[in-house]
Write a protein that binds this DNA or RNA. Structure first.
Lengths: 192, 192
DNA sequence: GGACAATTGGACTATTATTGTCTAATTGTC
DNA sequence: GACAATTAGACAATAATAGTCCAATTGTCC
């Protein structure tokens, strides 16, 4: 890792809890600089604006998460276990850190405003990966999508959309993880 | 309770967690109004400024606490038990709610800036109440201050000063309660 | 319905905070 | 000492907030 990447990484690590605590609007660049232990001037050497910084954080989080999701899906075990793990990774890395924030809604909104492309690309990639996993499982006779009259990509799309819907419905709350698990049981029951 | 008092009480109840969460500076009157479920205009019908509101909150908290402290000191049991309970009340009602805040230092500073008179008066009253309890206990032969070469008021002053010192030293942290208890054991050992 | 008081959204100004930029001084490194 | 990185601090432009005001709305009582 280059010196530059190490620095931006350190700043993003420091910025995350500041955004979680104060939300985007109330988190000032001074707050973030203080949290990172650097001067405000230095902050602008690494990021050209507050929006740029947030976008970089979102980009990094999505990149990391998708790498871990891909690893989970190419692991061992049956297709349900791998999908459950993958979705758990997605939830834990991209949603949970913010869902606990009192400003979770603002943060998700800001993310869609500033990093819509990255967010949608990651989501599309997630759908594609899930679809591939489902397709492979169907070919191997592990699952049966015929009774649902659905193609793998359709089911994958529904899974991701459901996660997103639950996230928006429950926001923070402990009900989120609960609803997630219920949905996974439902999925398993439907296509086993 | 008058209609007016009920309203200001409701507002102060709503404002407390806002101050705890955001600190004084970052807590806006809009935040407080939203938390109280009223309009910003209404907020200014009850309080003429943000400082006035904070001061009212501090005043109410001190009044409540001193009432409870007095009740604790005039309760049953030996003098140590009553003092321990009284100090626990003081800590729980006037310190703990803010010590958990990430902006605890700012809040204590603002309190001294905006409600110094109330804070110091309450502290003086606490010292006087403790001194009276100690004096009564000494008269009854329950404790012995002679070996310390101190008068009740001196010991009471030290107790309150120590609490304050520990508060400032530990700020938030779980060590506060721990140090409090240690100090009480120390006191008991010294004057039994 | 109509009088009445309380509440509200919204407009408004003055004040303050924040952003983003810049420079000169400082720090640490080779 | 040369060099690059970092810094404090000043700065203008922008945005947020405090506090005030009023006309419109709401609900209450008669």
């Amino acid at each position: 890792m280059s010196e530059r990447d190490a620095k931006t990484d350190h700043i993003l690590d420091a910025a995350l809890p500041v955004f979680v605590r104060h939300g985007f609007r109330k988190a000032s660049m001074a707050d973030i600089a203080r949290a990172a232990g650097i001067s405000r001037a230095s902050l602008y050497l690494s990021f050209k604006s507050k929006e740029d910084l947030f976008r970089a954080g979102s980009t990094r989080a999505h990149a990391r998460t998708m790498r871990d999701v891909e690893a989970a899906l190419s692991g061992d075990g049956d297709v349900f276990g791998r999908i459950e793990t993958a979705m758990a990774v997605f939830q834990r890395e991209l949603i949970a850190p913010f869902a606990g924030s009192a400003d979770a809604i603002e943060l998700f909104d800001v993310n869609m405003a500033l990093a819509k492309d990255i967010t949608l690309a990651a989501r599309a990639r997630l759908v594609a990966l899930l679809a591939q996993a489902l397709s492979d499982a169907e070919t191997a006779g592990m699952i049966n999508l015929g009774s649902l009259q659905a193609r793998p990509a359709d089911v994958a799309g529904v899974i991701v959309a459901a996660i997103d819907g639950i996230k928006h419905a429950e926001g923070a709350g402990p009900k989120f993880a609960e609803d997630m698990q219920l949905f996974m049981r439902l999925l398993r029951a439907a296509i086993s």
